[in-house]
Design a protein around this nucleic acid. Structure first.
Length: 572
RNA sequence: GCACCUGUAGCUCAGCCUGGAUAGAGCGCUUCCCUCCUAAGGAAGAAGUCGAAGGUUCAAAUCCUUCCAGGUGCACCA
């Protein structure tokens, strides 16, 4: 709908001697704070100086010019305090929006702004041989949502999980295993056993030196060490996959630091050739002090590589593999400086695609007392435990309301609600900021929570269910959209809200912030509940349109939630 | 020490990029609404020096400067 307004302005503004690009106009058109002010508005303050007239006068004249060329479904175009306010004809807007939502189905709200472009999204990236902890949850949730949104706006998306599967800690781990390892235990209870081994490897001093040597063996492709490493890696991936399957998250590639090792030699050669590499204190560095970015360590004194070396190599590998148009790294904000360094080094190496690489950062999870809580009592908080705990909480609530559901069905619903609770609990926040991770609040069935959204969806589904069984027809007749009576204010508010979905998705992508879509989910649910409260569907005179409106709402919410990685329930 | 991020209602957070029409939600608190499609909902109320002070502007929570408070990062970990 916004497009219609923009198109008119594109025609009208030149008549006023105002020259603006279409994109500029698009970004100026806004949604007024009050519904009765209009559906969209165009502020004229910015032109006052140039035209040497008051914003109000300019708005009035613009209004006239629009009148001359208007042939569209507007109820009115008004001027108010320097704004030109556009009000669509209610029925025709309702018809179009509801019709679009029902017909476009899973595509409602999608666009093609990224058509022909490829984006690589790196996210989640847990460490091999360690359990999937809460520390990687934020990246997983946000990265997945960003990938979904990018796909929805037309990009070709490649999702990469960059495992922490290389580095000196594997030296220690393998060294410890070679000395005290128990193969049976490893195979039986791998994650648990690997963690124990990991703790031991870090506890005893002897593994520090031994680990050093073993890591050098790894870097030199020692067969035995490499074999052990591979076992650890595969066992870990199997374990991670279980969690991703539960979350219904799929990756295009399990990469990892190990994948880039074969490129690190080349990186070092190239850096040398371009005279970027410098010897310092026995190690090799790239000096970025003149860019205020400190120095980057590329090669340790013992000749082995570092995280940075491998990340640079990996970026090159990915570009050669995917030829991406954009690449985003969904990684915590504590690595802000680090990513600036990496991108700078790539730029200095002459890769002009370095400028399309972006670090999309997120803040920390805090506990209820506002303290950092990635670890507590020195122990990692396991994803498995969080999920179990959340499921228990949601199952309890569901059982209160549905004492008769089967155990299996209860588990199914509890899981979907639990994921909604956790994902929405995270995504409703601006990703850049630290946030309190409070399962009690996330799982509450009241207020601004994931369960509230699913409840609203289920309520809507229930209406259709009832309507269908009563009348015996299995489908809403879209034709009924043609006969729309006078719209109640709440009906129109819902129509209006549904019409904003496309704008919100695009905004969310532009900001690379899923919270825009999350906030939209909440808004549209609130509006639906208001409608639900005051506009009975079944038995009303306007039942045809209202059923269609409910279906349009369900479709829109389903699409929006899908972008957040959240499933819906028909009954809850 | 330097750099980056954050500070909005008792609590948890939107809004800040791109200044604009009465600063919004949820929880909690005080009321009201189930003979009515899931009350897990809806309506109303109380609650704010938008960290502080300056500046820019017709207009500042939003932009700039300084200060205060908290967090994070700054060489052989990832």
């Amino acid at each position: 709908m916004k497009k219609l307004v923009v198109d008119i302005l594109v025609k009208a503004l030149p008549e006023m001697d105002i020259k603006l690009e279409k994109e500029e106009i698009e970004s100026m058109v806004e949604v007024p704070p009050q519904l009765d002010m209009g559906d969209y508005s165009f502020p004229c303050f910015a032109f006052a100086e140039k035209l040497k007239r008051s914003p109000h006068e300019i708005a009035l004249e613009l209004r006239e010019k629009i009148g001359n060329i208007s042939e569209l479904d507007f109820e009115s175009v008004d001027v108010m305090d320097g704004y030109v306010n556009f009000i669509f004809e209610r029925q025709s807007m309702a018809r179009k929006v509801v019709w679009d939502a029902i017909n476009d189905k899973a595509d409602y709200g999608s666009s093609k702004i990224g058509k022909g472009k490829k984006i690589v999204v790196e996210f989640s990236s847990p460490n091999v041989a360690k359990p999937f902890g809460i520390g990687h949850l934020r990246s997983t949730i946000i990265g997945n949502s960003l990938a979904n949104i990018a796909d929805f706006v037309g990009y070709k998306v490649k999702k990469v999980n960059y495992l922490g599967d290389w580095g000196s800690q594997f030296g220690k781990l393998i060294a410890a295993f070679e000395e005290i390892g128990d193969e049976d235990k490893l195979m039986k209870d791998s994650m648990d056993y690997m963690l124990k081994l990991y703790v031991k490897a870090n506890k005893y001093k002897k593994y520090e030196k031994l680990g050093h040597e073993t890591f050098q063996r790894l870097e030199n492709k020692d067969r035995k060490a490499l074999m052990m490493w591979k076992v650890f890696r595969n066992l870990s991936i199997d374990e991670f996959e279980k969690i991703y399957n539960t979350f219904k998250i799929k990756f295009d590639e399990f990469s990892g630091e190990s994948q880039s090792v074969k490129y690190t030699g080349r990186v070092i050669e190239e850096l040398k050739k371009k005279k970027l590499l410098k010897k310092s204190k026995g190690a090799m560095i790239v000096d970025l002090k003149k860019y205020d970015l400190g120095v980057v360590l590329i090669q340790k004194t013992d000749g082995t590589t570092l995280y940075a070396t491998r990340d640079i190599a990996e970026a090159i590998r990915r570009y050669e593999k995917y030829k991406f148009d954009e690449m985003i790294y969904e990684v915590g904000q504590e690595q802000n400086l680090y990513f600036k360094q990496i991108f700078k080094v790539l730029e200095l190496m002459g890769y002009d695609w370095a400028k399309v690489c972006q670090h999309v950062s997120h803040g920390l999870y805090l506990d209820k007392d506002g303290k950092k809580f990635a670890t507590r009592k020195g122990k990692t908080i396991l994803m498995e435990d969080i999920l179990e705990k959340t499921k228990k909480l949601t199952a309890k609530e569901i059982k209160k309301r549905w004492p008769k559901v089967s155990k299996k069905e209860l588990q199914r619903r509890a899981l979907i609600v639990a994921i909604a609770a956790i994902f929405y609990g995270d995504l409703k926040n601006n990703r850049k900021k630290d946030m309190v991770f409070d399962l009690k609040k996330f799982t509450s069935f009241e207020g601004n929570t994931g369960p509230y959204l699913l409840y609203t969806y289920a309520r809507a589904s229930s209406i259709l269910e009832k309507a269908n069984t009563k009348k015996g027809n299995s489908k809403i007749k879209i034709d009924s959209v043609e006969e729309i009576g006078d719209l109640m204010p709440k009906e129109f508010e819902l129509v209006k809200e549904l019409s904003l979905f496309l704008d919100k998705v695009q905004e969310s992508f532009n900001k690379l912030n899923p919270s825009v879509v999350a906030a939209y989910c909440y808004d549209v649910c609130q509006t639906f509940n208001e409608f639900y409260h005051c506009c009975p569907v079944i038995g009303s005179e306007n039942v045809g349109f209202r059923l269609a409106l409910v279906e349009a709402f369900r479709q829109t919410l389903r699409n929006a939630l899908r972008l957040l990685g959240i499933d819906v329930l028909e009954e809850m």
